[in-house]
């Protein structure tokens, strides 16, 4: 059967697509920044001496990594609503993203911390560095530099998974696509356009992370080699 593609009828919707794409990027940036903070603290918690804290952080990571994101969204969004806490949809969507990406970040950061040789930490202790100094200068900065590629890859994946928040009617790119296709009756074309937009955004984000990495890790920029 022949099918006539009609992308022209979607032209009038381009401001909508743009708005959705910007919202997706906005949600991703907020979620990744907060997720990184949670991930770092969680990774530190898992290494720490307090047994209960390590267990708690470990349980959080394992639970998030072994359940689907969609279930987490429903659990948090509908759960909070049933408990009487009605969050705006944008906030709820970002909250679920932070909750999700925080666990993945924690696991990546922990892997990076494991590559720091114990001798380095002992040397820092011998030099009389305080615990925050040791964590920041000796453990965190080198390990973040080492895991930067996987970290940025995870953030790009998070941008793509944010499409799932359309299921709680967040008006990001996929949400916009759903309403456009129900108005224009051009579902196939709509989703092809959106797929192209996501692809472009993924490439853009990868490039931005590359530039950002060059800017914040001067050693890598100068030598051009991984740590």
């Amino acid at each position: 059967m022949r099918y006539n593609f009609d992308f022209a009828s979607l032209q009038e919707y381009w401001p909508e697509f743009l708005r959705g794409a910007l919202m997706t990027l906005e949600m991703t940036v907020i979620a990744c920044v907060l997720g990184l903070v949670i991930g770092v603290f969680c990774a530190i918690g898992r290494r720490g001496k307090r047994k209960w804290l390590a267990t708690l952080c470990g349980a959080y990571v394992e639970i998030v990594r072994n359940t689907p994101y969609l279930i987490q969204i429903f659990f948090i969004f509908f759960g909070l609503a049933s408990a009487g806490l009605k969050l705006p949809i944008f906030a709820a969507a970002v909250l679920t993203m932070v909750f999700n990406v925080g666990a993945y970040t924690a696991e990546i950061v922990r892997a990076g911390m494991d590559t720091i040789h114990p001798g380095q930490i002992e040397a820092a202790e011998a030099l009389g560095l305080s615990t925050p100094q040791i964590y920041w200068d000796v453990i965190l900065r080198p390990s973040l530099e080492r895991v930067y590629p996987s970290l940025s890859g995870q953030f790009v994946l998070m941008m793509l998974s944010s499409s799932v928040t359309s299921q709680i009617s967040a008006e990001e790119l996929t949400g916009v696509a759903n309403s456009v296709q129900s108005e224009s009756f051009r579902s196939f074309e709509t989703f092809i356009v959106v797929a192209v937009l996501y692809f472009a955004m993924a490439m853009l984000l990868k490039f931005a992370f590359h530039l950002f990495g060059q800017a914040i890790f001067p050693r890598r920029r100068r030598l051009g080699t991984p740590l």
Binding site: S161, T174, S187, A195, Y198
Partner: peptide
């Protein structure tokens, strides 16, 4: 495939 969300892929296949 790695640069587009699975959800969008699903919609493209389903509607397409």
């Amino acid at each position: 495939v790695q640069g587009t969300p699975l959800l969008i892929l699903l919609f493209v296949v389903y509607f397409g």
